[in-house]
Write a protein that binds this DNA or RNA. Sequence first.
DNA 1: ACAGCCATGTAACTTGTTACATGATTTT
DNA 2: AAAATCATGTAACAAGTTACATGGCTGT
Lengths: 212, 212
Amino acid sequence: MSIRHSLLSILAQGPCYGYQLRSEFDRRTGSTWPLNVGQIYNTLDRLVRDGLVTKTSAPVDSGPDATQQTYYTITDAGKIEAEHWLNSPVDSYSVSRDELAIKLAIAVTLPDVDAHTVIEHQRQATRGAIDALSLTVEVREDARDASQFAEQLVTDSLCAHAEAELLWLDRVEATLTTAQSHGLVEAFPLNLTKPKRGRPATTAPTNEAAIA
Amino acid sequence: MSIRHSLLSILAQGPCYGYQLRSEFDRRTGSTWPLNVGQIYNTLDRLVRDGLVTKTSAPVDSGPDATQQTYYTITDAGKIEAEHWLNSPVDSYSVSRDELAIKLAIAVTLPDVDAHTVIEHQRQATRGAIDALSLTVEVREDARDASQFAEQLVTDSLCAHAEAELLWLDRVEATLTTAQSHGLVEAFPLNLTKPKRGRPATTAPTNEAAIA
DNA sequence: ACAGCCATGTAACTTGTTACATGATTTT
DNA sequence: AAAATCATGTAACAAGTTACATGGCTGT
């Protein structure tokens, strides 16, 4: 929903044509988000479909410099939508769709996988990412325009999350080690049940008895 | 790519049927990732399509309890893929696809938007998320099985990223304030250019002269 | 003439997601 | 009989992404 709303917000400043939106987006984000040109037109089509933008593909008057110009204009509904996007927070923390978290959660349940190795691999990669990001940070001077400001902002964001991830990885490993020393978190065997249609017998304990 | 690989990794332990995979996934992730049942079958179909899994839909022998059982078995290619997934780090930091970062980058370039307000809204929402997460953290005892371990792991991950975001928001606001006091980061007007086919005249300065 | 950028698309594809249909079985 | 759960799917859609086709115009 980011690209969609970003383009919509730019269009709230005034009508644009497709290629122009690409350069505007690039300028404002410091070319931070890799954006294919064709994606602009796809997104614009979907915005038109949803009534947030209108497409005016009118040939300019038949003078000497007659060109087919295609402009996209935001609608009232689009303005409301853009304003709403900018005034409402991004919701990243109500449900987790973090690939690393789910990966580690799965990894600790697999018998043939050493979760500590997975953690260590991730730690090295994340440290490498931080190093690479820090290089671009230190070379950089203070932002002189919005484009450089965007670059700085995005790099800092990546760094912040990466460092938080390192701390979290340490905590996970510590928790895992103590849990393993208590023999609590073992590999999860598959439930060797055959598929049985219908409600299972509640009297038949599956593996909850193993906990007690 | 998370669900796909998670299911594949579970299948590396042994053949499963669809519904079983759902419960296995739920157990191992502590019901952390909201997963529709139908999505299991979609994902399995795609795994079959890619040759990572085979589907054996064989009727069990014509005895008294004959049922149509549909099992999914991992292939050699699937095992390699699962192993590769578990041994290679998640790449979250080479390019940024963070919605908040792009949103702020866009916001500071919009004339009708006060970036400080956007930041403050986000700050409040993130603080609220941390509070909500901390509640579940404090109530929780030590993990006693993989399911609870997964819950803890995911909650901690969310917390860590949320707190990193708060720190980052403060830095962004500080940077923005000083940049604005120097009159550097102003609203980005649209380039009022008409679409012109072809390469633009290099001699014609667009708006680079404004910087100098 | 030719390379290279400006400009507009189209078509196909990816993963994730939801809503729905269908039926079997078991508990109440 | 009815409700709840087990079990297998299908169809459609979302956003993002890429590859490609097609021109026009400009500088060399």
